[in-house]
Amino acid sequence: MNRYTLEEFVQNTQQEDKGEGVFELETPRLLEINLTDTIWAKTGAMVSYRGKIKFEREGVFEHGVSKMFKKMLSGEGTSLMKATGDGKLYVADQGKKISILRLAQGESIFVNGNDLLAFEPSVRWDIKLMKKVSGMLAGGLFNVKLEGPGLVAITSHYEPLTLIVQPGDSVYTDPNATVAWSGDLKTEFVTDVSFKTFIGRGSGESIQMKFSGSGFVVVQPFEEVYTANGNQG
């Protein structure tokens, strides 16, 4: 167990400006946002802030009628908050590891709705409803497509692993352990009853996500289980 004097503790844990831009990792699990205008972040992710920052919950029609209906149909959704102003905003999500992605113009990525932490307003986004599979997951599954340019912060339980997908060499993953994947991949759900005693939860059969084409898939060594309202259980 580490023991510090008060002075030593402050020196070892104090915030430092690294000059890395809008998104800056203070620790592997705490994101500093150097706010000068507007940012979107997951509701409830704010840990601390300094400066003049105004917070607003995502309005029902904030992002248009079509996205509102998609959230209603999915039965769940990542609730967003808008932070506007000038200051430093610190966000985190249950101690999960944070990765910062810089999307170039035209680049896109799909992120599990529960693993999206924050993104710049220049990033275009839309909700992607996955094909429903009866009894697949408690609460269902939805993802957010994000298209650059701009910065996106995603989270994972422990260290993420990126798997490369190539034509003729598909990758299969557990939906509950899937964090993100590149925007050009083809996705579908497949089932394998013979594997039901080894993988998959609560469905009586193994439900897997199949990724085909050229790109990558990000997984985590942890299965996130969702309740009926889409929150992590």
Rank of each mutant, 00 (worst) to 15 (best):
residue 1 M to G: 13
residue 5 T to V: 03
residue 5 T to F: 05
residue 6 L to Q: 12
residue 9 F to E: 01
residue 14 Q to G: 07
residue 16 E to N: 12
residue 22 V to L: 15
residue 22 V to T: 09
residue 23 F to S: 02
residue 27 T to D: 04
residue 27 T to Q: 06
residue 28 P to C: 07
residue 28 P to F: 10
residue 30 L to G: 05
residue 31 L to W: 09
residue 31 L to S: 04
residue 35 L to R: 10
residue 36 T to D: 12
residue 43 T to L: 15
residue 44 G to T: 00
residue 44 G to R: 05
residue 44 G to D: 02
residue 45 A to C: 11
residue 47 V to F: 15
residue 49 Y to H: 15
residue 51 G to Q: 09
residue 55 F to H: 10
residue 56 E to G: 12
residue 61 F to R: 04
residue 61 F to I: 06
residue 66 S to C: 08
residue 67 K to V: 00
residue 67 K to W: 08
residue 67 K to F: 08
residue 68 M to G: 02
residue 71 K to L: 08
residue 71 K to T: 07
residue 74 S to G: 15
residue 77 G to A: 02
residue 78 T to H: 05
residue 81 M to P: 10
residue 81 M to L: 13
residue 82 K to R: 14
residue 85 G to F: 14
residue 88 K to P: 15
residue 89 L to F: 15
residue 90 Y to L: 09
residue 91 V to H: 05
residue 92 A to R: 03
residue 94 Q to S: 12
residue 96 K to F: 11
residue 107 E to H: 04
residue 110 F to E: 03
residue 110 F to D: 01
residue 111 V to P: 10
residue 112 N to G: 02
residue 114 N to I: 04
residue 115 D to T: 02
residue 119 F to K: 00
residue 122 S to H: 08
residue 123 V to D: 05
residue 123 V to S: 05
residue 125 W to H: 15
residue 129 L to N: 14
residue 134 S to K: 13
residue 135 G to I: 00
residue 136 M to I: 03
residue 138 A to W: 07
residue 140 G to C: 12
residue 141 L to F: 14
residue 142 F to K: 07
residue 144 V to W: 11
residue 146 L to Q: 07
residue 148 G to H: 07
residue 149 P to K: 02
residue 150 G to T: 03
residue 150 G to A: 05
residue 151 L to M: 12
residue 156 S to R: 04
residue 158 Y to E: 12
residue 158 Y to L: 14
residue 161 L to K: 14
residue 164 I to C: 07
residue 173 T to V: 02
residue 175 P to S: 00
residue 188 E to T: 03
residue 190 V to E: 02
residue 191 T to R: 01
residue 191 T to W: 01
residue 191 T to L: 01
residue 192 D to R: 14
residue 198 F to N: 08
residue 200 G to C: 10
residue 203 S to L: 06
residue 206 S to D: 00
residue 206 S to G: 07
residue 209 M to N: 05
residue 210 K to V: 01
residue 212 S to C: 06
residue 212 S to Y: 08
residue 213 G to L: 04
residue 213 G to V: 01
residue 218 V to F: 09
residue 222 F to N: 04
residue 222 F to S: 04
residue 226 Y to D: 00
residue 227 T to H: 09
residue 230 G to R: 07
residue 231 N to Q: 08
residue 233 G to S: 12
